[in-house]
Each structure stands twice: as structure tokens, then as C-alpha cells.
Design a protein around this nucleic acid. Structure first.
Lengths: 160, 160
DNA sequence: TACTGCGCTGGGCGGATTGTCCAGTTCGAG
DNA sequence: CTCGAACTGGACAATCCGCCCAGCGCAGTA
């Protein structure tokens, strides 16, 4: 699953101009179209590229408030809590973690006031002992992957 | 920026089968192709759909370890810290937050041992007073948006 | 050294889709 | 009632896609 330099350039190019098409990519990268197609297929079957789903902005949907909640779970209730949180649309992602909490989840809400409703719904479940919420004020580095791809493309480090 | 039911179905459809194409979408949704194109254009210029960039899996790139770090920043050093963290490829996102810490960032690493290197690089900067790291063990709810889109499409709540 | 597998090149093919028009119709707002 | 916005159904040329092929260079191996 190592990524070579061409793979890296390909992913970066795709990230910058998603609508670009295989043919144009082959022109920009200076390789044959078949090569680009083969690389793309490989990257996708590798799982390096999971897909090209639309990136939806919650803020534009009317949910401009983002928060992270650290949850403490009652012993043995983990599975139930997971199932519960999966039913809440405002829970955008959920992780189980080491450290001070047991779970960390990303929430969105229509407003700070609405966040209260969301949190009530999240913690309104037996298995959750305590929740600590941090509201996001600014997002200096939005979710990104390009720098990592570039680094992975440089290093010959065999991986996985 | 309100989303109606057709918009919602369109986004959900796109999310499930990104390679589907406008024409096939119009067939599935039972509307004219022009309508789908117009809706898509509107959603994109609205900012609801930010784009269709490739979704890259850090694990497949050789970075299977994810962690969240809560950082405490020395007063007035915020901007410097932001700039510093932006230069670290393993920092996938960064937020400034309310609550116990000042910033929250998502990190990836090649291994638990490698995570030490990443954290050292992250906190090896004057402005950072303290860092608390939580390693992700499981990810029961991967980053998702569909449930929220469906809810936004149902509710007539005017937004933004 | 010769062999073999692999990836890339450059080309070609038909089918399908895209972007872009258009006129006609419906529907809600003023 | 009239207007504008949105949707429909259709059309067009241009482009691209998925797929196929033969040939070539390079690596590792026998």
C-alpha cells in the first residue's frame, strides 16, 4: 500500500480539481491515460481513495455550531451508547478513546441554544455518566489530507 | 440556503453512489436532467456542497493511528501556534475551542510509537503549555453527513 | 546471459454523457 | 391578472469514458 510520487501527484491533483477527468489528468501529469486509469483503480481498490462523495458543509445546511463532547460511559454500556449516538443526526462522528473520557464525538447544532437540545439528547441516555463539551470557535486548519499525502509520497517507508 | 426534499434526495444519492452522473440521477429521482443540473449548480454555489474531492484513508497511507490532542496555549501565542501546527502534515485538523483546553487537533501517526514523534513535534513549540492526548481505539460512527442532510430536508426550518 | 512478468506508452473503438441551448407549461407572488 | 422562477422534454455537437491491443523498457530470476 505504499504510495509513490505519481500517486501522490495524482491525489493532490484530484483534490484540487475534482471535476478534472482522467484524460485531462493524464495530460497534466505527463503520462498516458491508461496509466492514470490503472493508478486510480489501484488506489481505489487499495482503499487509499475511499470514494468521491460530496463534501457537505453543515454550516450551509443551517448547522453553523460545531462542538466536541467527551463522554464517560458506565461500564459495559458501550455498545448501547454507540447505538444510541448513531441515531442522533447531529452526531457527525464518534470515537472510543483512551484518556480521560471514554468516547469523543463531534456535534453540530443550529445555534448555541440549539446545542443544548442536542447535548440533552446525546446525554439523555442511561449509559452516559458525564459529558464535557467544548464548543468550536474557529477552525484554523479544516480537515485536510494533502500534506500527509505529499509526505507519504516522498518517503519510501513501506507501510501496512 | 434551505434544503428541500429534492435537494436532500439528491445529496443522499450522490453520497451513496458518487460516480453516478447527472443523467442517471435524473432517472432515479424522476425529474428532468436540467433540473438536477440546476439543483447541483445551486447547491455548489450555495456552498452546501463544497466539492467532490477524493476521500483519502490515512490508514491506507500508512497512518493507522488516530489521536485527538487538547492543547493549552500561552496567552497571545494563538496565531503562532496555529501557524506552527499548520506545518505538521500529521495534524489533520485544528480547532480553537471553549472549555478546558484552548485548541483541539486531530493527529495521525504510523504507530503508537510514531505518535510520540508527532506529539513531540506538535508540542515542541514555545506557545504550547500543555497537551492532553486521547488515542482513538475504535470509530463506531465514521464522519457522516447523510442523517443530518435528511433531517435538514425534512424540516422546513429556514436557516442561515 | 536469457527469460519472464509488470508497468507504461500510444493508439483506436463505440457508447454514453456532458454542457448548453430552446420553447412550452405550471405555479406562486405581487 | 401578470410576471418571474422553476421544471419539463427535447435537441445538438463535443467530449470523455471504459475497454481493447501491440510494443517497449526494466526489474528480478533462473
Amino acid at each position: 500500500m505504499a504510495i509513490d510520487h505519481l500517486d501522490g501527484r495524482l491525489i493532490v491533483l484530484l483534490a484540487r480539481e475534482p471535476r478534472i477527468g482522467v484524460l485531462e489528468m493524464s495530460r497534466r501529469l505527463g503520462v498516458a491515460r491508461g496509466t492514470v486509469q490503472a493508478r486510480l483503480d489501484r488506489l481505489q481498490s487499495n482503499g487509499v481513495i475511499r470514494g468521491f462523495g460530496p463534501q457537505v458543509d453543515p454550516a450551509a445546511l443551517g448547522y453553523p455550531v460545531t462542538a466536541f463532547a467527551t463522554l464517560q460511559i458506565r461500564q459495559g454500556q458501550g455498545a448501547d451508547v454507540r447505538a444510541h449516538l448513531a441515531t442522533v443526526p447531529e452526531v457527525l462522528e464518534l470515537h472510543t478513546t483512551t484518556g480521560s473520557g471514554d468516547m469523543l464525538c463531534r456535534l453540530v447544532a443550529r445555534s448555541n441554544a440549539d446545542l443544548q437540545r442536542v447535548i440533552d439528547r446525546v446525554v439523555g441516555f442511561d449509559g452516559i455518566v458525564r459529558a464535557a463539551t467544548a464548543i468550536v470557535m474557529e477552525n484554523p486548519v479544516p480537515l485536510r489530507i494533502i500534506p500527509l499525502v505529499e509526505q507519504a509520497a516522498e518517503d519510501p517507508e513501506t507501510t501496512t
